[in-house]
Write a protein that binds this DNA or RNA. Structure first.
Lengths: 360, 360
DNA sequence: CGCTCCTGGGAAAGCGCTTTCTCAACCGTG
DNA sequence: CACGGTTGAGAAAGCGCTTTCCCAGGAGCG
């Protein structure tokens, strides 16, 4: 049933958790009384109350969540599933989710997939078993046919169980799939970033991070192309460099390109800041400086950006996470069609762009 | 009882989770049979098996973890509590924890404290209710008397319940407190970092991040002082700058110091990379460059380090997390005295240190 | 052919809690 | 002093699952 392994092993010592019965006995009352006093929603005599609290303290008693859940006072929780926690974008979203969950007293479960669709599906399944109020999926994934089908199924069964699937920074699965969607305007952002470069007079703009089939990459590429088109610049596929969204790739892309022949671009639009950082490194190694020789724009406005003075598109990462759980909660409470919100992005100007001098 | 709020709200629609009984009825068998077939640990007739699996599929059935836990097949989980997920160090540790947990099929719960001891205690309590196999506490905290007492109590009651408290990158609470400890050799690392600067001929070394009462800061300060002493350099309290471990603070420290008077140091040892990044920024603003004018060493070897070419102490962040859960598991299985391991650190040389020219 | 031995599956007893439902005691009133 | 209205607390019924314990039927044996 469950695709994730579960090894069974016995603890070596007979460690025991104290039960409500033991507390009741020690306090000389019934379990019902203990339960009520702990819940604090019932008239209670101070004397009894004290005795119970005393027993609780002495026994280090904590209620068993599982029993409590079964009996009708479930602990709410929300699950977040990301590629990796170390990637700044995911980390920020996770932070937002965690913060918002904590604010309403919910627990936060977390799982990572390493970018593997198979593991992601398994994680969703696991979280479904946990009866999380919402399962939040963040970011990039290769959205092929089979994946969509399976994920739609999960969305449905999650919804049938009163939970929600939340897609965060990811395109909707389809019109009839009951999934909450919260994303940023990637296409618009990419449009703005590219336009910024175009406004500075750049015409040969390399873009880094093309990745067919991956939703986030495709959205940015679309924005890039739209901007070019809007400025009447012919679109050159040779300027669209393929690769994943990691630092090393940015480095590789530029290194290889500069090694391959004379420089045929005056600016770079990197699809994320990591890529930009890697690219910058490669440029420096080739004696090129930013923005003197090459202008550079990133996407994300995450930690590396500030350190390298990168002009970049700011994304409301943490807000993405917060909104995800807020929306999930609201939707679970009020019902209706699953919301789909698009958060805005804006350009943050630092020191990596300079107008292109028009040569006479 | 529970210090965290729990709001109760009713879902708007009658969303229902299917139960094992419904599956049993649909398949025309008893619940016992369904349970056994799902567990797969019992001889079963293929025909029955197929009927059951069919029903499971049709009903989108997933077992209720809570019921299952109660009935004796608990889902194991491990909880990690950090200041914040966005801080790279915590993120890496969390990644390690998550990965290791996933490897043994455990669930990973996460909570953040924002550096507040009160919230940390509340989180431990919450995780205790969840019956996590281990509660992992990461990093810095103001370890005052009251905090220690309370945390020791939690350690004891966690241990009494067959769980473990794991302190990650934090000093032990005391000899008789049943807590697993895994940390890095901060003092040794700080010693090495400072020695590296000393070996390059620097004698006036500013150190950034003094913070009395905070264990991690104090360990680094001790290493710094030890190194100075080992080289017979008189120890100047005026060179120990106080502040928290964030970028802005590093910037502030250097900015204020340079504004206050002539530069009285030739090198800087920052207690973490964020501080170093901030300091670098301030140096640049003052027309000082690294390593030409000032040598700089950081601590952590986390993302900003690579981008700014920082020579720094490498810490095995992710390994810290992995070890934490591994140790907790082992200790829960085999018992004995709680282990205490210290992981090694090493210097990573980049381009931020240069030998001091001895002026004639 | 009568016996034991497997194999497959049902009944039912909990796991630890919450929550009706019930009831005893006690209060103040007319 | 009898009586309705509080207040405080117990008994017991589940919540959804796992797991003994138990039993029917067929295979294998002497």
């Amino acid at each position: 049933m469950n695709p994730l392994v579960r090894k069974a092993k016995k603890p070596v010592e007979g460690a025991r958790k104290s039960t409500i019965r033991e507390v009741a006995e020690r306090a000389g009352v019934s379990t019902a009384t203990v339960s009520r006093i702990l819940a604090g929603n019932y008239p209670d005599a101070p004397a009894t109350r004290d005795r119970v609290m005393q027993a609780v303290k002495e026994l280090h008693y904590v209620a068993n969540v599982h029993a409590r859940s079964l009996a009708g006072t479930p602990t709410k929780s929300v699950a977040i599933i990301v590629n990796s926690v170390v990637s700044p974008h995911y980390a920020h979203v996770a932070q937002g989710v965690q913060a918002e969950a904590a604010a309403v007293g919910w627990l936060c479960l977390i799982g990572t997939t390493g970018g593997d669709a198979e593991r992601e599906l398994a994680m969703v399944q696991l979280m479904r078993e946990q009866h999380a109020e919402a399962v939040i999926l963040v970011g990039n994934v290769l959205a092929n046919r089979e994946y969509r089908t399976r994920m739609s199924q999960y969305a449905h069964s999650l919804a049938a169980a009163g939970s929600r699937l939340v897609l965060c920074g990811r395109q909707p699965l389809g019109p009839d799939v009951p999934a909450v969607v919260v994303e940023c305007d990637y296409t618009g952002g990419a449009f703005a970033a590219t336009s910024h470069l175009l406004a500075a007079g750049h015409k040969r703009i390399l873009c880094l991070g093309r990745r067919p089939g991956y939703t986030t990459a495709e959205a940015r590429l679309a924005g890039y192309r739209n901007a070019l088109a809007a400025h009447g610049i012919p679109h050159d596929p040779g300027l669209e460099v393929e690769g994943t969204f990691v630092r090393e790739e940015g480095y590789r892309m530029i290194k290889e390109r500069l090694a391959a022949g004379p420089r045929d671009f005056t600016a770079i639009f990197a699809f994320n800041d990591l890529l930009a950082a890697g690219a910058l490194h490669a440029l420096h190694e080739n004696g090129l400086s930013v923005p003197q020789d090459v202008s550079l724009v990133g996407f994300d406005d995450l930690p590396p950006a500030l350190d390298i003075g990168l002009t970049t598109m700011h994304l409301p990462h943490e807000e993405l996470g917060r909104t995800a759980v807020r929306l999930a909660v609201e939707h679970a409470t009020h019902g209706g069609t699953p919301p789909h919100v698009v958060l805005d992005t804006h350009l943050v100007e630092r020191e990596s762009v300079r107008p292109l001098e028009s040569r006479p």
